[in-house]
């Protein structure tokens, strides 16, 4: 198992590196102006020259994404557990959840900024709103698709709802929860950036917005590179955590 991991990152590198080289060559060969598409070397040198401010912005955005994801997780898991205990609530609750889900965040984000200011709080809320739905839906179907033979066994002991939930339904739902996390993890970064884009005092989204309004594309792309790297990092962490937590499923 451990020998597979380096080969995976080598594989990723083997795909990404040629793509970057090709990009570099095309930009140079066609002499594309920097305000249309900067070459990867220009982007990376921008990143290196402004390492400090990018670092600070990344920390802000990552923090917002993590707290927002935690919020979305708590809300999604909490509501799913509630519906697992009282299935009668499902229809009403899911209608509400779909209402939230189908409201465009791009419309809510500026409102929250007006109400709550340019700090991190509205970003965390937006990220929470964006990430909770996949968690809720997956967790709920996980709770509902618990192994029938195990459920029968617990029912034959006259286990109460809480005992069934804790001992069978929740562990059966964990693989589903990780499937949701693989969606919601990277989504959390997008949520934080989108929220920052609509007005923020710091963060990668703000850098992107500033760069965009000044047509400073190397700046913009540098932030995009950082976001892509962070997304990959999130995903990798989630995969590692899944292996540890859901140890009983055949890999």
């Amino acid at each position: 198992m451990n020998r597979k991991r380096p080969s995976n990152s080598i594989l990723a590198l083997a795909i990404v590196a040629p793509a970057l080289i090709l990009w570099e060559l095309i930009v140079r060969a066609t002499q594309t102006p920097i305000y249309i598409l900067p070459a990867p070397t220009q982007i990376l040198s921008t990143l290196a020259n402004n390492a400090g401010s990018y670092m600070q912005a990344s920390l802000i955005t990552l923090g917002e994404a993590l707290f927002g994801l935690a919020l979305g997780l708590m809300a999604g898991i909490g509501i799913a557990l509630l519906l697992g205990l009282w299935p009668n609530l499902e229809r009403g609750m899911m209608t509400l959840a779909i209402l939230i889900k189908s409201t465009p965040m791009i419309a809510i984000a500026p409102l929250l900024t007006i109400w709550l200011g340019f700090g991190v709080l509205p970003k965390i809320i937006i990220t929470g709103l964006m990430t909770f739905f996949p968690v809720l839906v997956n967790m709920l179907s996980g709770l509902q698709s618990a192994n029938p033979a195990m459920l029968d066994t617990l029912h034959s002991w006259n286990a109460n709802r809480g005992e069934v939930l804790r001992n069978v339904r929740i562990p059966c739902a964990l693989p589903y929860l990780f499937a949701a996390l693989k969606v919601s993890g990277p989504l959390a970064l997008i949520g934080a950036v989108v929220a920052e884009w609509t007005g923020a005092s710091g963060g990668l989204g703000r850098i992107m917005w500033l760069a965009y309004t000044n047509l400073n594309l190397p700046y913009l792309f540098a932030a995009v590179f950082l976001l892509a790297a962070a997304g990959m990092g999130f995903y990798g962490l989630i995969v590692q955590a899944e292996k540890k937590v859901v140890f009983w499923t055949p890999s």
Binding site: N147, A149, M150, T153, W157, E163, N167, V168, F247, W248
Partner: peptide, 25 residues
């Protein structure tokens, strides 16, 4: 009641599976 499938909880060791039968209800 015991059926054809052992229906052990895969996230619990043999001992924990047995003790669960005593801890529940």
């Amino acid at each position: 009641w015991m059926a054809q499938s052992p229906a052990l909880l895969p996230w619990k060791t043999a001992r924990d599976n047995i003790e669960l039968a005593q801890r529940v209800n």
